[in-house]
Design a protein around this nucleic acid. Structure first.
Length: 489
RNA sequence: GGUCGGUUUACCGAGUGGUUAGGUAGCGGUCUGCAAAACCGUUUACGGCGGUUCGAAUCCGCCACCGACCUCCA
């Protein structure tokens, strides 16, 4: 099983057998968010996709070091390497320190990830904490002659790089074509070519987040942090680098160029890219303003939402599609996912209630293999789920007495769901815990309504009896002008 | 304009050159005091036009439409 995993490598545009560089160790780096506003549905996608990969590799007994960075510096608001820093802009708008903005939205992002049952990566490094490493890489690139300094800023020399290496190999860009199509922008006169990109930017006087360097008081270019931090924690060559498809160009292309120029060799073996969430057929993105935040999904408070959707519904919804396909948001699709998710959870509960028969009428011997085959085929979670639903139907049939399962088969099915549903897909039953609060509320509503009926019929003995019994159970009932409220002692 | 990807039954969404994906919804039935759940059955599709083939939704070509990237972006 262990060596059968195939993953789609963006750089070769084909599925390849996964062979770690140094088994049993696996290095995995994924581009995390820039924390300057609430996380939206689009942020959940890579988090869940690579959580699935992390969980599966761990299940296969690889020793995975999973790095997911937090970008807290260096993202400029406007066109290429010019304009205001996004975090600083938000800080100005909200009257906060830039690092306060970062902390606020980072906390929120991490809370959302926990709600989605996304495991914490091994390390969650922040760009601002790795300025030294980034400067070191800039120095190395300068020494090798692939960068130039102008007025305290350092730019990567793409043309020079392309003489020896291949700029555009990941995204399929051809430099001559880029030359024609790259927009000419204001304030780019420092660059030798419009497709050159900043490694270090000299800060303007009003810029808040800046650090001393040999070139100027300034800040690192956006692409640099991932190169520097992946090298620091995973080494000069590592296994997998992931992220959203929208990062393929220019971000990942520039990363490849920087790392290759600085180290003289390729760093990443497998590039994996998850596809986008769309809404009305268009990409969901902060900059397009068509996003729904995760908090809004969980609470239902958004004009486009007909209801709230639980974190596990969202997780199930995303796992029902393959990670390289786009997923279009709609209430209809989410409601279907909610019901499907509940059916799965209920089926697992039914399994635990099943009474063993002497012999089974269902052959479950090939199930586990089918599940592994689905995952081994480039993490095909939809096919895995379809296999699991076939099992659910069998379990329900057995519960209805149409099929039979013996004790050993019931045990191995329990084991199967524990592995694939809980451990690998990361789906958990959320009807207990948080759900029980809702249940209590609903129960109380029923009791209170019954008591109101009794009161309206002047059945005071009964209504007092209900109140007393609730008191014994630790619930205080308070009659209001119309209706009643209650609280637990 | 360039590069890349997509178009599947009512909706979502997999997939393979010839055999039921799965979920949701609908319809009929079983069960049931009613309802719900569950089960069984059912509706059976692959953008258009050509080509290859004994056979294509699956391979090739052309066309149409949609999208992503070419600015920041998950």
């Amino acid at each position: 099983m262990q060596n059968r995993l195939e993953i789609y490598n963006s750089i070769t545009r084909s599925k390849e057998p996964f062979k770690p560089l140094h088994p049993p160790f696996v290095g995995l780096y994924v581009c995390g968010p820039t924390v300057y506003s609430d996380a939206h549905l689009g942020h959940a996608r890579p988090a869940i996709v690579f959580d699935l990969l992390f969980r599966y590799l761990t299940h296969l007994e690889f020793k995975v070091r999973y790095i997911r960075n937090i970008t807290d510096v260096g993202h400029l608001e406007n066109d290429a390497d010019e304009g205001e820093d996004k975090i600083e802009k938000k800080a100005r708008l909200e009257h906060l320190e830039p690092m306060e903005v970062v902390q606020k939205y980072l906390n929120n992002y991490l809370r959302n990830m926990e709600q989605l049952n996304v495991l914490h990566p091994s390390i969650e490094p922040r760009a601002s904490g790795h300025i030294f490493e980034q400067q070191k890489l800039v120095k190395s690139i300068l020494e090798k002659g692939y960068a130039y300094e102008v007025n305290g800023s350092v730019y990567f020399d793409v043309l020079k790089y392309n003489e020896k290496y291949h700029y555009g190999k990941l995204s399929g860009r051809v430099l001559e074509e880029l030359q024609g199509s790259t927009r000419s922008l204001e304030g780019q006169d420092e660059k030798r070519n419009p497709f050159d990109f900043a490694l270090w930017k000299k800060a303007t006087p009003e810029h808040l987040m800046k650090w001393p360097s040999p070139w100027s008081e300034g800040f690192p270019g956006w692409h640099l942090e991932c190169s520097a931090m992946s090298i620091k924690y995973l080494g000069e060559t590592f296994d997998i680098h992931g992220g959203g498809m929208d990062l393929q160009f220019p971000h990942h292309e520039c990363e490849i160029a920087q790392s290759t120029a600085g180290l003289g060799k390729e760093t990443v073996k497998y590039w994996m890219h998850n596809n986008m969430i769309t809404i009305n057929g268009q990409k969901m993105a902060r900059s397009l303003g068509n996003f729904i935040t995760l908090d809004q999904l969980f609470s239902g408070e958004h004009a486009l939402l007909q209801q709230s959707y639980s974190p596990m519904t969202i997780r199930f919804f995303l796992l029902q599609a393959h990670y390289r396909s786009t997923v279009d948001f709609s209430n209809e699709a989410l409601q279907a996912a909610e019901k499907g998710y509940r059916k799965l959870m209920k089926g697992i509960e039914t399994l635990s209630k099943l009474k063993p028969s002497p012999a089974s009428t269902i052959d479950i011997s090939s199930l586990k293999n089918k599940c592994y085959e689905a995952l081994n085929d480039d993490l095909n979670s939809p096919v895995l789920l379809s296999t699991l639903f076939d099992v659910i139907r069998n379990i329900n049939s057995a519960y209805d007495g149409n099929e039979k399962l013996n004790a050993a088969d019931i045990d191995s099915l329990k084991n199967l769901f524990s592995i694939f549903v809980n451990d690998i897909l990361g789906l958990k039953d959320e009807t207990s815990g948080k759900g029980s609060e809702k249940l209590t509320g609903d129960l109380m509503k029923i009791i209170i309504n019954l008591r109101q009926d009794a009161k309206s019929r002047k059945e005071w003995a009964l209504s007092d009896h209900i109140r007393e019994e609730l008191k014994k159970a630790g619930i205080t009932l308070k009659d209001l002008k119309d209706g009643a409220e209650w609280e637990v002692e």
